[in-house]
Design a binder for these strands. Structure first.
Length: 550
RNA sequence: GCGCCUGUAGCUCAGCUGGAUAGAGCAUGGGAUUUCUAAUCCCAGGGUCGCAGGUUCGAAUCCUGCCAGGCGCGCCA
């Protein structure tokens, strides 16, 4: 929540109590305390509490605001409390005092976190691309969102696990097997065409080559056996590519879970559904009555040919996740899966789990552009931009940052040209530069972080600050609100928004407030260190590095 | 046809649990540098919030209908 905002909220509640508002209505009031949107307003925070109270008290909001203001005017932590507009309460904070000291100390010694009364064991599943080829740019977006949200959840005290689901069974995998076998035969000099609808990508040739080198003894085996061995080799190979790409991108998984591990669980869940009378036969297939739980139509779980559908395995997978002790499941899917949500939740319900503990998030696509011109991606044509190709040209931090500069629900336009420009119009560098500047100041002053830290203990941190110094303090404290928004709305975007605004406050401070050699040197060093530590803490959530110099 | 997402400044987007004169970055024009790194800071111009109704003290925000774009509607995964 942040020290400043939290304090104002408490004070407003106390004031409202004095006006005779019952405690329980106050708890359910849901009023805001936020920075004003009007920039010409002389206030740090503004609250709509009077509007919300107006409904309960049946009184003019402006009158209520006036009454609240009366009770707050003596408070030394506010230099000004005003009623504006039709009833907004506008707060200007004192530029020094106990609250400021608390913010500085919190940034110096504390860690960003969220008060979550109900911490749980949470499983994050994200990316989970088929092991049929390299990861692409959209997978990169999913990876970033999932990884950062997992970090955010950790800050709320949840015990988080990251999992990648490997779909190593099914029709696509059979096609993969046929494709790579054809490539191998071609390499062995046979005139074999690629199968219809197979995977034409050149990367399968590389895999076939590697197989030839490492498994030369197996090449004479009968086709069936050879195909089996080659397929296993291929999947392992592609999964390790994917893992390497993700690690290069700064994303590490706790578990790589294979669909083929679910065969036992599958029988178990089907028995459960059977016992509940949720399965029926149709044209030789087995169908699950998902409509009972709100799906648009019933879904086939076993095909007429006797094989299980992908969905059937997913039911088993859900059961498996819960049975491993996870209390909350978070699954991040691409936009092409939105029709899938209802049936996944139907499965959750049918298995007897609370659908409230299974959250499915969607993110939208990524359009890659180069100087405004769209770069087309098509997996079918074997022509698409891989995550590795992107990382070959674009800095990892820039890529991560770009992926969350938009809400996940909107299409993201990733301009490679802009990302490549290491200049002022690239927001990542703007943020990094603020860190580099602080390091530079400390170097100039021949000071380590620890030395600056010890200055803090001998300094009066309640003294009145100059306006731009105080703006940095306020920005430091606002990190809590951004983390909270990111958590509650499941939107990493708010984290980048904070970083930009905070860096702006710092650059502005730096611009006019000389540090080394100034009369205010010590307090400014401490403010800089507080900012630096808060920014580093932020960077560990977002997963970007901060340079000592640029 | 049905479902999900989107439509706000020239461009990319915030704001959407209803509240003040609708914001930011980029781009454009102007200004600041014997600098703790100017990868910075300051100023300016720029808007029928897709369209039309409705709800109310008040709508970019909620409801309905329409228009436009993206994606999805398999016994594929």
């Amino acid at each position: 929540m942040g020290i400043f905002r939290g304090y104002i909220i408490e004070e407003l509640k106390n004031s409202a109590k004095k006006l005779g508002v019952p405690a329980d209505t106050l708890e359910s009031l849901e009023f805001n305390v936020e920075p004003p949107t009007k920039s010409d307003l002389d206030a740090d925070y503004t609250s709509n509490i009077a509007f919300k109270l107006a409904r309960h008290l049946k009184k003019n909001p402006k009158l209520i605001a006036e009454e609240l203001r009366e009770t707050l005017s003596e408070n030394l932590n506010f230099s000004q409390v005003q009623v504006g507009g039709n009833g907004f309460l506008n707060f200007k904070l004192s530029r020094g005092g106990e609250l400021v000291e608390r913010v500085i100390k919190d940034a110096l010694f504390g860690k960003l976190r969220i008060a979550e009364p109900n911490p749980r064991k949470v499983l994050f599943e994200f990316v989970s691309a088929n092991p049929t080829g390299p990861l692409n740019v959209v997978n990169g977006r999913a990876a970033t969102i999932g990884d950062i949200l997992a970090n955010v959840f950790q800050r709320a005290g949840h015990q988080v696990s990251r999992e990648y689901y490997v779909n190593d069974l099914g029709g696509q995998i059979e096609k993969l097997a046929d494709s790579v076998l054809a490539r191998l035969k071609q390499l062995l000099g046979e005139d074999v065409p690629l199968p219809e609808g197979g995977y034409p990508g050149e990367y399968l040739i590389d895999i076939a080559k590697k197989f030839m080198e490492t498994h030369s003894g197996d090449l004479k085996l009968p086709d069936e056996v050879l195909r089996e061995k080659l397929l296993k080799f291929t999947i392992d190979e592609i999964v390790s590519w994917q893992r390497r790409s993700l690690e290069r991108f700064g994303v590490r998984y706790d578990t790589w879970f294979r669909q083929s591990q679910l065969t036992g669980e599958l029988k178990k869940v089907m028995r459960i559904l059977e016992e509940k009378g949720l399965l029926y036969q149709e044209d030789g297939a087995i169908v699950f009555k998902t409509t009972v739980y709100g799906d648009d139509k019933d879904r086939v779980v076993r095909k007429r040919d006797g094989t299980w559908t992908y969905f059937a395995y997913d039911i088993a997978y859900i059961s498996n996740k819960y049975s491993r002790g996870f209390q909350y499941l978070l699954t991040i899917l691409g936009p092409d899966h939105h029709g899938y949500i209802k049936r996944l939740l139907a499965a959750t319900k049918a298995l007897g789990y609370d659908p409230e503990t299974h959250e499915i998030l969607l993110h939208q696509l990524v359009t890659l552009t180069y100087g405004g011109k769209e770069v087309r991606m098509s997996k079918r044509q074997g022509k698409f931009v891989t995550l590795d190709e992107l990382l070959d040209s674009v800095d990892r931090d820039v890529a991560r940052y770009f992926f969350i500069t938009r809400l996940k629900d909107t299409h993201l336009e990733f301009d490679v040209e802009l990302a490549l420009r290491a200049s002022m119009d690239n927001p990542v560098y703007y943020v990094k530069y603020s860190h580099a500047r602080i390091c530079s100041v400390f170097r100039k002053g021949n000071l380590t972080d620890e030395e600056v830290e010890s200055l803090a203990s001998s300094l009066n941190l309640r003294e009145l600050l100059e306006e731009r110094e105080f703006e940095v303090i306020k920005a430091i404290d606002e990190a809590y609100s951004s983390l909270r928004s990111a958590y509650l709305l499941r939107e990493p975007y708010y984290l980048t928004l904070w970083a930009y605004n905070a860096a702006y406050a710092f650059h502005k401070f730096y611009d006019t407030c000389k540090i080394i050699g100034s009369k205010r040197q010590d307090i400014r060093l401490v403010i800089s260190l507080a900012f630096k530590r808060r920014l580093s803490d932020w960077a560990s959530i977002v997963g970007v590095s901060l340079p000592e110099e640029m």
